[in-house]
Structures are given as structure tokens and as C-alpha cells.
Amino acid sequence: MVHITTSWRGVAVLVAAALAILGVIAWSLSRPDENTPDLGTRTVQAGDVEVTMTALALNGSGAVFKIVLDTHTVELDLDLAASAQLTVNGAVADGAVWEGQGPGGHHREGTLRFATPVPAGATADLRVIGLPQDVTGTWSAP
């Protein structure tokens, strides 16, 4: 007859191993999908302001862009959510949300989000007004 004894040390080792495995799984799920296409970055000069727009997501959940504004001469005091307009296949999307640095200074960086779905294959135009010149970037949704 085989007698199996369970010690607290053995249980603790099993729990620690299970937590480690769950941690690895959670980490791998939180990483960007390596099969996601590179949507691209558009850099546009608006007078003395360099505007860099990177599409992070264009899908059924909406559109997300990383925005970077750089200058040495102009005060960057515009309201980016109010100054941004997204057009998807010719239809204007409402409700931009800015998550980033507030107005002022010579460098601003943050994320601009639109909840309007972007269908696969759609053309998405992001326009920012209120700078020395208006800027537009264009992407095709994967």
C-alpha cells in the first residue's frame, strides 16, 4: 500500500508554481500582437511645429493615435481633443479624447482616441487644426 503525505511545503511549492505560470500567461497576453500590422507614422511640418502622428489602432473598437508636437518658437496651447478631426471613409467621427500633456510649452505628447469604429480596409484621415498650419495624416485600416 502506498502512503502519500502532503506537507505544507509541498502545497506552497505547487501554489508558487501555479502563480508563476499564470504570471507568464498574463504577461504574454498583455504584449502587443506581433502579427498586428505596422500602421505607420506620419510626420508633418506645420510652420515651426513638427507634428508626429502614429496610428496605434484602427479597428472595430475605434482609432488610437500617439501624437507628438515639438517646437522651439510657438506656445503649444491648443486643446488637442477639440482640434482633432477623424474622417473614416468620408464620414466625420466625433468625440476625440486626449490623454497626455496639457496646454503650454514647446513639447507635448499623448494619445488621441476616437470611439468610432474603423472598418477593415477603410481610409482614415486625422486632421489637426489650430497650429500655424493645419496638418493631416492618412492611413488604411488593416
Rank of each mutant, 00 (worst) to 15 (best):
L22S: 13
A81Q: 11
G100R: 09
R108A: 14
S61R: 09
T71I: 04
A63L: 08
R42M: 01
V44A: 01
T138R: 11
R113A: 08
G10C: 04
E75I: 13
A63S: 09
W27N: 03
G47E: 03
W8N: 12
A91M: 06
T54I: 00
A141F: 05
G40L: 00
A84F: 10
L19N: 07
P37E: 07
V2A: 10
V135L: 09
T138L: 03
A17L: 15
G121H: 06
W8M: 08
T123R: 06
I25S: 05
V135E: 05
A55K: 01
G130H: 15
V64C: 01
G104H: 13
T36R: 12
F65A: 03
L56Q: 09
E109T: 10
D70C: 00
S83P: 10
G23K: 02
G100M: 13
V13S: 06
L131K: 05
V128R: 06
V2D: 13
H72C: 00
L112D: 08
T111K: 10
P117E: 14
P103G: 15
V49E: 01
P142T: 06
R127Y: 07
D77G: 15
D77A: 15
R9S: 11
L80E: 12
Q101S: 15
T52H: 00
S28C: 01
F65E: 02
T6V: 15
Q133K: 11
V92F: 04
S7Y: 02
E109M: 09
A82N: 14
D77E: 15
L39K: 00
M53L: 15
Q101K: 14
F65V: 05
G102F: 13
P142I: 06
T52Q: 08
V135T: 10
G110L: 12
V118W: 00
A63D: 05
Q133P: 00
I25T: 08
D38F: 06
G62F: 03
H72W: 01
G95I: 10
G105N: 11
G105T: 11
T136L: 10
S83T: 12
G105S: 12
L56R: 07
E75R: 14
T41F: 00
F114E: 01
R108E: 13
N35I: 01
A18G: 11
W98F: 14
H72G: 02
G137F: 03
A141V: 11
G60T: 10
G110C: 12
M53N: 00
H3K: 12
A17I: 09
S28N: 07
R127G: 05
I129R: 14
E99H: 08
A120W: 11
S61E: 13
A55I: 02
D125H: 03
L80D: 10
R113E: 07
V2L: 10
I129M: 11
G62H: 05
G40H: 00
G100C: 14
L131S: 07
L14F: 03
V15I: 15
A46W: 08
V44N: 00
A124L: 05
V88H: 02
A141G: 04
L22I: 06
A17M: 11
N35R: 11
V24L: 13
D77N: 15
T123A: 06
L58E: 01
T73G: 04
P142H: 06
L80F: 14
P119H: 10
G130K: 13
V49P: 01
